[in-house]
């Protein structure tokens, strides 16, 4: 199972890298979402996986009996999921604003802060 997870995580990484290299903002955002999931899975797998056994202490005991899932990566991932959502929502607001301002979803066309080299050179000459 560990090997399958490792392959899945690598596959998700590859797909999202390709998506993020797209000129289209929207595809980039899909890559952004997928890579968030891939990283979370990666962290989860690094903490070792075990079928069943949530990290809960049963009634009447002071500590879980037998092996349970590693709680630390879970805690990290749980907060990461929520933060990832916050960032995604912010990125969507940004994308929406960009669309309203530039009427384009092509990242190569959004160059207000860093104009193209030829345009920059012209501005320098002036």
């Amino acid at each position: 199972m560990e090997i399958l997870l490792a392959l899945l995580v690598g596959f998700m990484f590859g797909a999202s890298v390709y998506l993020m290299l797209s000129r289209n903002w929207i595809r980039y955002l899909f890559g952004f979402i997928v890579i968030g999931n891939a990283v979370n899975l990666l962290l989860f797998a690094v903490g070792r996986v075990e079928l069943g056994h949530p990290a809960l202490v049963p009634e009447g005991l002071l500590a879980p009996e037998g092996p349970v899932a590693n709680a630390l990566p879970q805690a990290l991932i749980l907060t990461a999921i929520v933060i990832g959502f916050g960032l995604l929502a912010f990125a969507l607001v940004l994308a929406s604003r960009a669309w309203a301002e530039f009427e384009t979803v092509d990242v190569d066309e959004m160059r207000v802060a860093e104009p193209r080299e030829d345009a920059a050179r012209e501005a320098e000459d002036e």
Partner: peptide
């Protein structure tokens, strides 16, 4: 924080769009 933050983000998006 989660209720407020998520709602603020979603409201912002809804109003933007």
């Amino acid at each position: 924080v989660v209720v407020g933050g998520v709602l603020a983000l979603v409201f912002a998006l809804e109003e933007e769009v």
